[in-house]
Simulated assay, not measured.
Amino acid sequence: MEKRTLGRTGREVSVVGLGTWQLGADWGEVSEADAREVLEASAAAGVTFYDTADVYGDGRSERVVGRFLADHAGEGFTVATKMGRRAEQLPENYSAANFRAWIDRSRNNLGVDTVDLVQLHCPPSATIEDDATYDALDALVEDGSVAAYGVSVETVDQALAAIARPHVASIQVILNALRLKPLERVLPAAQEAGVGIIARVPLASGLLSGKYDASTTFAADDHRSYNRDGSAFDVGETFSGVPYDVGLAAAADFGALVRDLPGEVTSAQAAIAWIWQQPGVSTVIPGARNSEQARSNAAAGDVAPLGEAFLAGVRDLYDARVRELVHHRW
């Protein structure tokens, strides 16, 4: 699989990585055995970048990834975690003392002395704009607790504020066929600054797989059930903030574009490939609940250039179906 430099980390990572939210919580039950199979299948398929967070299953995802990492020492994998969402989302909670406590817990969960990349986990805008935030993160780099740091964001304005900081290595942002706004300013600014882009929610919480319809149901502990109104966290994380019925119609349009592609490409693979083929994207982090999904997602890293007709079709469906609902919000 093609590899790209992950911004200021200097690390080479696979263009398709693995997001491990599913392996912790909020997507229905995934056993530890299944979680390990997902990790192993991804690695065998060429995935070298793994993204987790301290809040996924209250550390369960980090611990599973840590045990996997220990069994693959020296194989060149890069593991990123995120911190900050275990506390009430107030700027004053993003303090140097809390950073120290959070990163030490993650280091213990992952079984590492130095975390490859730590990201603030969609913090308040005031935190992103505060000089003290970066002083505290710089201190973690200086003492060897982390090798590099980045920021996971919800909005374009947050991304641009973080990109302007000289030591921010990467930005994690929602980017998919139902969320095009980052293409306008975020990706060009990141390229110019040498900052990596980690694209999350590539399938719009599964909508772009083309496997859902109006009768599809989700488990009660799945955020696609309980966060459709944004009552648990930013609604943009669930179906990219698009109402479910609108998302189904947009996904059908996307599926029609995929059917015109040559070869055997699934809707999910096309959705992932569309992202990593955007200039400025370092890696895309789809999740997977089983090894079959993991292998299929990784295969998206081998999809041939989708072509201008496909790219134009994505822009058209976005303009027709979802722009007015999401473009002004994030």
Score class of each variant (00 low, 15 high):
A33N: 07
R67Y: 08
H72G: 01
R323C: 04
V242C: 04
A309F: 00
S225V: 02
D113E: 15
F254L: 05
N109G: 02
N297R: 07
N227S: 04
Y94Q: 06
A300T: 01
A101N: 12
Y212C: 12
F233V: 01
A251T: 09
E154Q: 02
T81Y: 14
H327Y: 13
P243Q: 09
E2R: 15
N227P: 03
L317G: 06
D113C: 05
D213H: 06
D113A: 14
R85C: 01
A271W: 02
M1C: 04
Y244N: 11
L110W: 08
L187F: 07
R105M: 12
W276T: 01
R259W: 00
R185K: 15
Q172N: 13
D316P: 02
G46T: 00
V322M: 08
R86E: 13
D234E: 13
D138A: 15
P262E: 07
P182N: 01
A193L: 11
V246C: 04
L110D: 05
R289E: 08
D113W: 03
G241W: 08
A220C: 09
A44Y: 05
G144Y: 08
N108G: 10
A43S: 06
Q191P: 03
R259Q: 14
R60H: 15
A270S: 04
R85I: 06
A45H: 08
P262H: 03
L317A: 10
G84M: 12
Y244I: 09
L248T: 12
A312Y: 03
T127E: 10
G241L: 05
H327S: 13
A87C: 02
P123I: 07
R295T: 14
S106V: 00
P279A: 00
D34K: 03
S14F: 08
V151I: 13
R321W: 01
A249R: 15
V64Y: 05
V322A: 05
S152M: 12
F68H: 07
L261Y: 05
V201Q: 11
V30W: 00
R36M: 14
S205R: 11
T155F: 13
N297I: 00
D51Q: 11
E184N: 09
K181S: 15
R100L: 14
I171D: 07
E12K: 13
Q119Y: 04
T114Q: 12
G46P: 09
N227V: 05
E2V: 09
A300V: 02
N297Q: 01
